[in-house]
Design a protein around this nucleic acid. Structure first.
Lengths: 225, 225
DNA sequence: CCCGAAATATGAGATATCTCATATTATTGT
DNA sequence: ACAATAATATGAGATATCTCATATTTCGGG
């Protein structure tokens, strides 16, 4: 992890200002940090001393179960908070958060700001919105995952993560995220190719029939937002 | 739906006071309402004019998918909010909420209180806590549901809903909630009986080996709180 | 008190998904 | 450049779960 100083720090504070999300001058307290790919931003079980706000990059939330199985729970993207659970709750089992690309974030020290944050209407209103979205998205995902076979969830995932007409996520991450076995993911991908929805080109997949994928993915939409 | 007046209203306002959750006198605006079993508190797609706080009873959140399938998403219990999404977001597709027992709740009129609620630190902090819990619980459920077979989730569900050593939830609701077919739920229940974890007595199941059920259920615990 | 709807129950065959075994191909550290 | 590790690939058999068909029982409304 690298902490930006001087001009570099200034640059990010100005380019990605979040002062409007607070009613007190937060910037003077904030650190600007960069985490490298695969670096742990928060280690599972270790209570963080900072509240983070991601301004660039992607990270993953993991949890380890008693049987040793590790699950990817969700992605974290730009404009997400990290560590808000620990700010709000005295007792909380901290989940592991790992950068999956270079990730730049603001780090707000809790020992200095905790009290003020919890009394700041602007911040609380903002955080409440963020959390309500998160709760709803999770609820949606939950009922989706229970109600539909991989075919539908994968179609949705492909459309969400494709770069133009190119899909190239790592299978290992995907089957983890979608909660299916590697074998089965491959199986369904082959089906998609057989049906002509996708075309495999070496290591990437090219989307051939967006409409068909949409037909599968739309089944699990209910337009909450 | 019945609106309590006079002494009855006063009684509930006093017995279940929530004035400490607000920094302005909210009670004068609040209605006290009773919904009967199966009555809709909020109809899917209809934006509610009130923020509700449940003080007694149980309700269910439903969503209808494009293919017509209706899914039970979650339960609502005493001390939960209803309608907070609509308070926080201008644009939001409202889910259906149906009372599953007689349900008594406070109803706060948004046209009168919206502005003050969104500027009330005490309320916002409280709501933020509530939502963060909700988000985390959903995230947990999500990864659980994906990672483990019904056996584990059912064991957990039985322990959570059992009254003493008696389990007597309706199969139809349960398989809906756990997202499995009726047939399969029965199948696993029979297994539990065969293994001696449960004993069927007419229409109820008596828990015989709590420890064995715990062993199954504990696999999906990670002690977040 | 009777009827129809809802809930419970069970069997049998189909599908979705998992586990394990094994091979080939990238990627990465030294 | 090489070895180790991770990612990709594929087959085959085992399980978990679903769908459909059909019977019986419970329960609320007229």
């Amino acid at each position: 992890m690298e902490i930006y100083k001087q001009e570099k720090r200034q640059h990010y504070l100005e380019q990605h200002s979040i002062s409007h999300l607070f009613s007190f001058p937060i910037e003077e307290f904030m650190e600007v940090r960069e985490y490298k790919r695969d670096e742990w931003i928060i280690r599972e079980g270790m209570r963080p001393d900072y509240l983070y706000y991601v301004i660039e990059g992607k990270a993953k939330i993991y949890v380890t179960y008693q049987n040793g199985k590790i699950s990817l729970i969700n992605f974290i993207n730009a404009h997400d908070y990290i560590g808000e659970m620990e700010l709000l709750h005295e007792v909380y089992y901290t989940k592991g958060i790992q950068a999956s690309t270079k990730t730049i974030c603001f780090a707000i020290p809790l020992h200095q700001c905790r009290k003020r944050l919890l009394e700041d209407t602007t911040f609380l209103r903002e955080l409440t919105r963020f959390l309500s979205m998160k709760a709803t998205k999770m609820a949606e995902k939950y009922s989706q995952s229970l109600s539909f076979p991989l075919e539908n969830r994968l179609a949705d995932f492909i459309l969400q993560t494709a770069d133009g007409e190119v899909y190239k996520e790592k299978h290992v991450s995907v089957c983890d995220f979608l909660g299916v076995s590697y074998r089965h993911l491959l199986h369904v991908l082959v089906q998609f190719c057989d049906k002509g929805y996708l075309q495999k080109e070496g290591r990437i997949y090219r989307i051939q029939q967006t409409d068909e994928l949409h037909r599968l993915a739309d089944v699990l939409k209910n337009d909450s937002f």
